[in-house]
Amino acid sequence: MLASLPALIRVPLVVLLLALNVLLHVLPLFALTLLKLLMPVAGFRRACSRVLVAIAESWIAGNNALFALFTRIHWQVDGLDGLRRDANYLVLANHQSWVDIPVLQKLLNRRIPFLRFFLKSQLIWVPLMGPAWWALDFPFMKRYSRETLARRPELAGRDMEATRRACAKFRQLPVSVMNFVEGTRFTPAKHDAQGSPYRHLLKPRAGGVAFVLDAMGEGLDAILEVAIVYPDGPCSILDLIAGRLREVRVSLLQRAITPELRGDYERDEAFRLRFQAWVNELWQEQDARLTRLLDA
Rank of each mutant, 00 (worst) to 15 (best):
A3R: 15
P12T: 10
L18F: 03
A19V: 14
L23D: 02
L24I: 08
V41G: 00
G43S: 15
R46W: 06
A61K: 01
N64W: 01
F70D: 06
R72Y: 02
H74Y: 05
G79C: 06
L83M: 08
R85W: 03
N88G: 08
L92Q: 13
I101M: 12
P102I: 13
R111K: 15
P113G: 12
L115I: 15
S121T: 06
Q122V: 10
V126I: 15
M129K: 00
M129V: 12
G130H: 11
W134V: 12
T148H: 07
L149E: 01
A150P: 05
A150N: 12
P153E: 11
E154S: 13
T163I: 15
R164N: 08
K169D: 14
V181S: 10
H191D: 11
H191P: 07
Q194K: 12
Q194R: 12
G195D: 13
K203F: 05
L213T: 07
G217A: 12
P231A: 03
P234A: 02
P234E: 01
S236P: 00
L240S: 06
I241M: 00
R249H: 01
V250D: 08
L252Y: 06
L253N: 11
A256L: 07
I257L: 07
T258Y: 09
Y265G: 11
A270K: 08
F275D: 09
W278K: 09
N280F: 11
E281G: 15
L282W: 13
Q284I: 06
Q284L: 13
D287S: 13
L293D: 02
